[in-house]
Amino acid sequence: MATVELTFSALPAHVRTARLVATAIARRTGVEESVLDEVRLAVGEACSRAVEAHRLHCPGEPIRIELSDDLGRFEVTVTDSAPSDELEHDRGMLRIDDPLGQLPDTLMSGFGIAVIAGLADEVQVYPSPKGMRIRMSWPAAPNGLPRI
């Protein structure tokens, strides 16, 4: 199993970097080209949510992202240090039938998790008072792409 870890400060500009790194490693791990857009968007959503949460609760703390290939799956875990609760998790898993009535213009955290759930092949969300961990994965080539 190969793992890449990246930590970044809670700045919106770094989310794009995290997306680019995740997409590059997903490609190298053998995730199908047609799925790379979903990886890029899901990782971006998870990192955006973490950045927004850190800016509210702990702007000085870094956000961690781990990317690994394990037994034919590409797995990404985004971990933040901002307190979260079950409510946010539940809200994210709900189908949003009235977006205009429910959604604020800015913080779209629950919405973001709903998007991740719609994009990732598998997703687990672990909220806790010490932070949230979002683990998502997609199928990849069993041994990654051949080295050139």
Binding site: G44, E45, S48, L100, L103, P104, T106, M108, G112, V115
Partner: peptide, 19 residues
């Protein structure tokens, strides 16, 4: 090239305002 839920929120906010 890329749109995430933050962008969706901006569009929803714009829609609320014009409506």
């Amino acid at each position: 090239d890329f749109l995430d839920s933050t962008g969706l929120g901006v569009l929803v906010g714009g829609l609320k305002r014009v409506r």
